[in-house]
Design a protein around this nucleic acid. Sequence first.
DNA 1: TTGCGTTATTGTATAAATTACACTTAGTGT
DNA 2: ACACTAAGTGTAATTTATACAATAACGCAA
Lengths: 232, 232
Amino acid sequence: MEENLPKFESAISIDCVIFGFDAGELKILLIERSADPFKDWYALPGNLVKQDEGIEEAAGRILHELTGLNDLHMEQFHTFGEVNRHPSGRVITVAYYALIRINSQKEVKPLIEFAKKAFWHPVSELPKLAFDHSDIFKTGFNKVRRRLHYQPIAYELLPEKFTLTQLQQLYEAILNKKLDKRNFRKKMLSYGFLKELDEKQKNVSFRAAKLYKFDRRKYAKIFQNDLNIEES
Amino acid sequence: MEENLPKFESAISIDCVIFGFDAGELKILLIERSADPFKDWYALPGNLVKQDEGIEEAAGRILHELTGLNDLHMEQFHTFGEVNRHPSGRVITVAYYALIRINSQKEVKPLIEFAKKAFWHPVSELPKLAFDHSDIFKTGFNKVRRRLHYQPIAYELLPEKFTLTQLQQLYEAILNKKLDKRNFRKKMLSYGFLKELDEKQKNVSFRAAKLYKFDRRKYAKIFQNDLNIEES
DNA sequence: TTGCGTTATTGTATAAATTACACTTAGTGT
DNA sequence: ACACTAAGTGTAATTTATACAATAACGCAA
């Protein structure tokens, strides 16, 4: 760190890998670019950080502008700073992932200026993305996969009330492998932070499953020791 | 991402948390600042990224300039971008950690221009650091602690040949808790990537322990499946 | 109302991993 | 040869993970 700060003639951006879960499939939000470079390509939503804005703050703002949603769990996962990653100039991008409930009441409404359109795309068959966005996605997905084991991120993707089968499908989608139903349920319930509701699925043409919700208080209580170790 | 790239009037820096292990203690490399702001404070070694230099490259260069060492395992762990984290202007810093063998032949030789001095300091009793460097350290240490469980980072801190007791002391220093000797040895040896040498400790005033070395080939073979899952 | 189709729900036996725990051995130095 | 120090070693108990399939509940249609 130097005293006289030479200016760095570059731009800083945020790119977001926004995960959603819908119809048993894991999806991310993509935009179609309306101008060069990479005109007509699909890309991750992202934008530039403002001069007077912290990057966490910027990430929140940009996600809000792109989806209309606020206060989501956003987590920074990597910064990409290769010199030539952007053909128009030096752009260093800080990548975040976010987890949202696709089915929540609000529509996802991206800014028009930004892209021709925005849409959800299944992660299982992503096309090549603009810039190094395929790498960014891959890195982010791996982080999410890993964090799934020790952070309650699944519950940010599911609706408030969900069935154990939905939870299992989500785990299977993220981990990309089949899990044993009995063992899965046994394990999830053994944690003690899933609250069984007096309510069942509706509008299904078969036996309705019990609904559960994630009990944030109990989760915090159960894992406060672990967290303390992390912080200490 | 915009087409016409407005310039971001800021500096990008790299800060390094450089871990070493010596005399049974985990240490990091600090510098003492020679000028304001934070004159005379201790700080993490760091420097600005150049205009035409990728950040990975910059991290390698900066670490080299500060220690004379090359080709170390460096890993990016977080980017700090609060607006006011640096009193002289906007500086966004990408933080890396590195793991080195303090006792290796070469001396650590920091650039003079940079700081009054550079020295190893035990992590167990760090003073307050300049800027937000205490936070950076804390975040980095937590990442290292977590990665210890699934990446072979311990062997980058130990000498080429080491005893199981040294390995255990290192684990205890990073995890900050006592481990059971028998269980620890059993588990480490069960992985199958530690090679027992026909050699013992020298110059000790008690029974000499067997020396082991980390077998990178075997490690790669054993964990290639896991890695494939990560990449896929 | 009966039967069919679909998904929900549940337990047990086995294997693997983790934990708790203390004495004997080997070498050094006096 | 004695004392000191750290090295080295095994077993039983517990917990956790895995493999595996039949029955119950419900909607729907005949």
